[in-house]
């Protein structure tokens, strides 16, 4: 199923014209947190433990916990985090019911929910309003599964966290040692 080579053009303009030299700027990002729910496993055991697998597409920026029930997603100010759902069994029903964030963190995120237009697929969306606190913003997911009457809540919380600090602080010189050459300092 190989696609044709670079000749596939998807630009809206019919005649390509050279773009002005672009200015590099910081990129706001939309991160997708995708939850894979084992509906039969959750219904059979009565809990989402071991039946909820969370993933995001921001591992490059430092997200951790992929493939587990507890994910730490890196997000910065003005980024958008979108939660989507997939049921592991192709004919099973799973819908994200709630992203539960304590109101103490209301200043950090603005939550919204909706459905992809003309479909019943639900998404939840969080806009990051200001830089996240060091410990992150914890949240818990709840799902409607199959035709169960009650929603199933994740047993552990996940987090939206700020980017990890990349550079180690310089080591100050000790009184009886010569000052360290900058090239000898640890750098990441």
């Amino acid at each position: 199923m190989a696609r044709a080579a670079r000749s596939a053009e998807t630009a809206a303009k019919p005649a390509p014209k050279p773009m002005p030299a672009p200015k590099p700027g910081s990129v706001r990002q939309a991160t997708n947190v995708m939850a894979l729910v084992d509906v039969v496993g959750a219904l059979g055991s009565g809990t989402l433990a071991r039946s909820l697998f969370l993933f995001d597409n921001n591992r490059g920026a430092g997200s951790t916990g992929h493939g587990t029930g507890s994910l730490s997603t890196v997000a910065q100010q003005d980024d958008v985090v979108v939660w989507t759902t997939m049921a592991l069994e192709c004919e099973a029903f799973a819908r994200l019911q709630l992203v539960e964030i304590d109101s103490a963190y209301a200043e950090y995120v603005a939550l919204d929910a909706g459905a992809f237009s003309e479909t019943p697929e639900v998404y939840w969306l969080a806009t990051i309003l200001k830089p996240l606190p060091v410990d992150g913003v914890p949240y818990r997911l709840s799902y409607r599964l199959g035709s169960a009457d009650v929603p199933y809540r994740a047993v552990v919380e996940s987090r939206l966290v700020p980017p990890p600090v990349a550079v180690a602080p310089p080591i100050p010189a000790q009184p009886d040692e010569p000052a360290l050459d900058p090239s000898q300092e640890d750098a990441k």
């Binding site: 700027g25 990129v27 990002q29 997708n32």
Partner: peptide
């Protein structure tokens, strides 16, 4: 426009994020 995953038609994409700095060549 906020809901990029709800692309109505093929939303003209920005540059693929090849650089870990997060800077986009077309922004």
């Amino acid at each position: 426009p906020q809901m990029l995953l709800s692309a109505q038609g093929f939303v003209d994409p920005g540059t693929a994020r090849f650089k870990r700095t997060g800077e986009s060549r077309v922004a």
